[in-house]
């Protein structure tokens, strides 16, 4: 059985990627499971979807713990613990990263024993969320790497899954998908179906006896304020608002008032300061600033923000 996990951000089309790949496998006569993982995650937040494909009935269900292929649509997710991109990745698993950096860099950085394949990141993009073809490119990459999905099966899957979006969008996606499929032909078939957890000699988890705890402790209640500030929603951001202090006139804190998340504080001198650990990058501030003093910078081009370094 092939077990493939797609990691991206809400809005990048990971569900679509899993459905295109699932349909492509199906077109090749495989038994298939594909599913997105829904949580509280929103646009920009890390999400994943997965596909299983086999020549016989699939009995496994749910999240893939031991993937054969992990596709990372957004390289900034790799360093994010909440994204759990590398969960279950071992020497057998192929990791495909959509990145500007070459495979050895990632291999070294992540101390990966298994193969790393790079899908080069286009340079001209500004907002990673803006490019809707990432999902289809990821599906095409997966199809090529498993090596058992012909272009015709993939193309049909892509047409079927994107049909509702209109012909123009289908055609716009076919080209990039084909280019990715061709580009990765040297790696065709580098993904091999992995083994299952054996019933003999398995590693026994440390089971505990779940003991009674008083309702004061064991009710779903939080006896504190503002604990949500420990959640780094700044990791959702793909565009970063940067205030040009020279142009900021210290108005009636328009940016701070309109920021839905309350992630812009105003200091005593009336100057706004963005809390990058929590700014989700909606850019309402940039759109509303009366003096156009807030610029949007693609996150991967921006230096690490002070707040985030402190918070990580």
């Amino acid at each position: 059985m092939y077990r493939i996990r797609f990691h991206g951000r809400g809005g990048q089309g990971m569900k679509t990627a899993s459905r295109i790949l699932g349909t492509a496998f199906f077109n090749e006569g495989f038994e298939v499971q594909d599913a997105p993982r829904y949580g509280a995650e929103r646009r920009g937040a890390p999400i994943f979807a997965y596909v299983r494909a086999a020549r016989r009935a699939i009995y496994e269900r749910g999240v893939i713990r031991h993937p054969d292929l992990v596709i990372v649509a957004d390289e900034t997710l790799v360093a994010m613990p909440a994204a759990a991109v590398l969960q279950g990745v071992d020497a057998h698993c192929v990791v495909l990263i959509h990145s500007r950096e070459p495979a050895p860099v990632w291999q070294h950085r992540l101390n990966l024993a298994g193969p790393v394949v790079i899908l080069p990141l286009a340079e001209e993009r500004e907002d990673r969320l803006a490019l809707r073809q990432i999902g289809t490119a990821c599906a095409a990459a997966a199809a090529r790497l498993v090596g058992v999905v012909a272009w015709t099966a993939l193309e049909q899957a892509l047409r079927d899954e994107l049909a509702a979006l209109g012909d123009a969008l289908v055609e716009a996606n076919l080209g990039p998908a084909r280019r990715v499929y061709d580009f990765l032909s040297p790696q065709q078939g580098c993904v091999a179906p992995g083994p299952v957890v054996a019933a003999e000699g398995y590693v026994r988890p440390d089971w505990v006896e779940l003991a009674f705890e008083d309702a004061r402790v064991s009710a779903p209640a939080i006896h504190a304020a503002l604990t949500s500030e420990q959640v780094q929603t700044g990791q959702w951001r793909t565009l970063r608002p940067v205030i040009d202090c020279a142009r900021c006139k210290g108005c009636w804190w328009v940016c701070s008032t309109f920021c839905p998340d309350g992630a812009i504080q105003v200091d005593e001198s009336g100057r706004p300061r963005i809390d990058y650990a929590h700014c989700k990058g909606c850019m309402v501030c940039a759109a509303q600033c009366p003096h156009h003093a807030i610029e949007a910078i693609p996150e991967q081009d921006a230096p690490p923000a002070e707040d985030e370094r402190g918070a990580k």
Binding site: A40, F212, P220, A221, I222
Partner: peptide, 29 residues
């Protein structure tokens, strides 16, 4: 002065199982 967020959501089966099972243990008590 004593902030309390009561009956909050959980994400995932693991915390959910904990709370539900504690409820069961309390009922057994």
């Amino acid at each position: 002065g004593a902030p309390l967020s009561e009956a909050v959501a959980v994400l995932g089966g693991s915390p959910y199982s904990y709370f539900r099972y504690q409820h069961h243990l309390a009922a057994l008590n």
